[in-house]
Amino acid sequence: MFPLERQKKILELLMIKKVIKITELTEELEVSVDTLRRDLNLLTEQGKIEKIYGGVKLVESTFGESSIDERMISHLKEKEMIAQKCSEFINDGDCIYIDSGSTTYQIAKYIKNKKNLTVVTNSIPVVNELLNSDVELVIIGGKVRKNEKSVVTYEYLFNFSELNILKAFICASGITIEKGISDYNLEEAITRKKMIELSKEIFVAADSTKFGKDVTIGIASLDKIDYMITDHNLPTHFVNQFKKTSTNLIISQN
């Protein structure tokens, strides 16, 4: 196993167990203590983990929003199922918007064989995923949020009102019946609001842990959202509440 693979595995294990002993890691990864120590030192320097007596733990995010790297491996199975369900709504010849985020990123993996597809995005990981495919790529020009690997403040370089976006796939950090969808970052929220305004159909792709949360910046009320796609872990009371709204709630299955 290469160092990067081991380090990713360490983070995946910590997302599940939160705290792991050094002895557990050496057995799980089948490496020596010295090799493991080098990986842990690097992850510590990057601010991703914290050493404690006899083991390590994840560093808690300071401002509520976890990093994109953490979210890429958190609830991964659920996000893949959500993305696969989203891909069923994408047809050959569509022009779509894929938002920055760990759930919407997964959509890119399922659409590489679509014909005459145009993807507008502000997500650098989405661009990297689709770079060697036949998908036509349009990336928002503007300021790069390095920690989120996204591009915001689109008005710097491009007039997106000229684009005919059929479907926008948007992420959210919080979803409530009363307030709709919300996010932690103002610039991300502004970009999402603009894409919702420009697009004919709006899909929100979010795992079930985002429901019941109303975080810092409001993006859109539910009457602006056509489809809400989430995983099968969503509590029943949310399902019942959505029946009273105009938003179509779609549950991805195992």
Rank of each mutant, 00 (worst) to 15 (best):
M1W: 01
R6F: 05
K9M: 08
L14I: 09
M15R: 10
I16E: 15
K21D: 14
L25R: 05
T26K: 11
E28H: 05
L29E: 03
V31T: 13
V33R: 15
T35P: 05
L36K: 06
L36H: 10
R37C: 02
R38K: 14
R38P: 01
D39H: 00
L40Q: 03
T44R: 14
Q46T: 00
G47H: 03
I49Y: 06
G54E: 03
G54A: 01
T62F: 12
G64T: 13
G64R: 08
E65S: 09
I68N: 05
E70W: 11
M72W: 09
I73L: 14
H75Y: 08
H75K: 13
L76S: 04
L76F: 12
K77N: 11
E78W: 00
E80S: 06
K85Q: 12
S87C: 08
S87N: 09
F89D: 10
D92V: 06
G93K: 06
Y97Q: 02
I98S: 03
S102N: 08
T103S: 11
Y105I: 05
Q106D: 01
I107K: 03
Y110F: 15
K112I: 15
L117H: 01
L117G: 00
T118Y: 01
T118E: 00
V119S: 07
V120R: 03
N122C: 07
S123P: 04
I124R: 11
V126M: 04
V126T: 15
V126G: 02
V127R: 06
L131P: 06
L131C: 10
V135S: 02
L137G: 07
L137V: 07
V138E: 08
I139A: 12
I140M: 13
I140W: 00
G142N: 06
K143Y: 14
V144Q: 14
K146R: 13
T153W: 13
Y154V: 10
L157S: 14
N159I: 05
F160D: 02
I165H: 02
K167R: 15
F169H: 06
S173Q: 13
I175F: 03
I175D: 01
K179N: 12
I181T: 11
E187C: 02
E188T: 11
I190G: 00
R192L: 00
K194F: 14
I196V: 11
I196M: 02
I196E: 01
E197P: 08
I202V: 15
V204Q: 10
D207L: 08
V215Y: 08
V215I: 15
T216H: 13
S221V: 10
I225N: 07
Y227C: 12
I229S: 11
I229A: 10
D231L: 04
F242N: 03
K243A: 09
K244M: 13
T245P: 09
T245Y: 07
T247S: 10
T247M: 06
S252M: 06
S252W: 02
S252H: 07
N254R: 14
